[in-house]
Every structure is written in C-alpha cells, then in structure tokens.
Amino acid sequence: MVKPLFGFALAGIVLLGSGCASNVTQPEQYSGFLGDYSQLEEAMSASGKPVLRWTAPDFDPQRYGSLLVEKPVFHPAQAPSDKMSQQTLDQIATYMRLALQRELVGKLRLVGQPEADTLVLRPAISAVAVSTEHLKAYEVIPIALLAAAATTAAGTRDQEVTLYAELEAVDAASGKPVVGMVRKGQGLSLENRKTPLILDDLKPVLDDWARDARHFRP
C-alpha cells in the first residue's frame, strides 16, 4: 500500500536533513497520485538528472498527433500558509502547465479536449519541502511538534527548497497510463525561515523539468 506524504503537505513546512537528501524521491515520500509505483526504475533525464520512471512496453510516441496538458494538481491537497500564499500556489500550478506547453508545442499539436490520437499529460505537485541549510537531520514529525525543534535553529540560515512532482501520461483513447514519472528538484534558497516562498524561487526547476519533457525518450 502506497504511503501518503505525511508532514510534506503544502499546508506546512517540514524540516528535512541529510537523512532524506537522496537524489530521487523515496518510497515513503510517494503521494499516491500514481496508481502503481512498483514498476518505477531509476533513470536519467535529458538534462542528466536522476528520475524514477516507468514506460509501458508498447508505448510508441509516433502513435500520437496531439497533446493535452492538464492543469497540475496538488496531491495531497494544499492549503495556503504564511510560507506560501494561495496566490503563490495558483501561480506555481499555472506556470508548470505553461512551461510544459511552451516546450512541447513543437513536438505535438496542443489541444484543449482529448481526441483519438491524444496523449494526455497529468502533472501533480506532491510537496514543497523547506529545510534549514547545514543543520542536522530531523525526523519527519507532525508540524505541531516540529515547531519546538525549529525554534532551536538560527533564523538567519538559508532555507533550501525542494520540489517534488509526479507525472502520468495517459492514452486518451484507451485511458491507460503509458508513462509514469516521479522526480524532485532544488529551487532557489530562501534567505531565512521567515522569507515567504514565491513563484520565482521555483521557476528554474520547473523550466528544467519542462525542457526534459521536450527531449523525453522512452
């Protein structure tokens, strides 16, 4: 059974340390957005970044003449906070979709409704984790308990931002998933733990992911 992200939700900030500093998302960090994680294998993106990926054995990109990029969802569901406003959450989802469309428009014809030859991209943002730079690892614990540990941290230290995402490509005609992907990436560091997160802090990683989608090879 897939474990949902606990303490990773966008409603709060989780302090993570080196113990969770793997280059790829760990099984306990899967959000449940994808129906099956058992076939994921580590691979390299076009830009040379490690990802977890699954491709259906019969997947043939040449079958598709059109592409529908759905608006990214937050999974688990997000709530605005002092760290991330509702405006920022909306901007992140909108920008992720626009970046994917911008990079993929030359690969396939973009459509607003699925057609017989459409490949549907379903992106999800599963977590935005903020951790204090150079501090020892903290166990992932409920936000209320974490607050006591966080007060011991120097408020002036940089805050490292990690974005987690999951993506599924679905054959519009059959409804079957043909590609699944889980990945993480680093946003720009925040000045300190009182600094709110804004879209510009995540644009570089979202742009990188969109370019990788353009150069995707099964």
Rank of each mutant, 00 (worst) to 15 (best):
Y95P: 07
Q113P: 00
P61R: 09
M96D: 03
K49C: 01
L98S: 15
R53E: 06
Y37F: 11
L15Y: 02
D117F: 12
F59Q: 02
S66P: 12
V105L: 03
V14G: 00
S31F: 04
P72H: 03
P57M: 08
V14I: 08
D82Q: 11
D117R: 15
F8P: 00
T55W: 02
G65W: 02
M84L: 14
R63H: 12
P76L: 06
S38I: 10
K83E: 11
P61E: 13
V2K: 06
G48T: 05
V51R: 01
A21H: 09
S31N: 09
G112R: 11
L10H: 12
C20V: 04
L89G: 00
H75Y: 15
R53N: 01
V14P: 04
T94S: 13
E103Q: 15
R53W: 02
P50T: 04
D90I: 01
G32K: 04
G7Y: 00
L52I: 10
G32C: 04
S85Q: 06
N23Y: 12
M96F: 08
A77G: 10
T55H: 06
G48C: 02
F33K: 03
Q86M: 04
G17N: 13
L104R: 07
L89F: 06
F8K: 04
Q91F: 03
P76D: 07
C20T: 08
L100D: 04
W54Y: 10
M1I: 06
R102E: 11
A9Y: 00
M44C: 04
T55S: 13
R97N: 01
M1W: 07
L34R: 05
T25N: 02
T25R: 10
A11S: 15
V73C: 05
L16M: 14
A11V: 11
V14A: 11
V105D: 06
L100P: 01
F74Y: 15
L110F: 10
P50D: 02
Q62D: 07
K83C: 04
V105H: 13
G112K: 09
T118K: 14
Y30Q: 06
M44E: 13
S85C: 05
Q113C: 03
G17H: 05
Q91I: 03
A79W: 14
P114D: 09
G17S: 07
A56W: 10
L40V: 07
D60G: 05
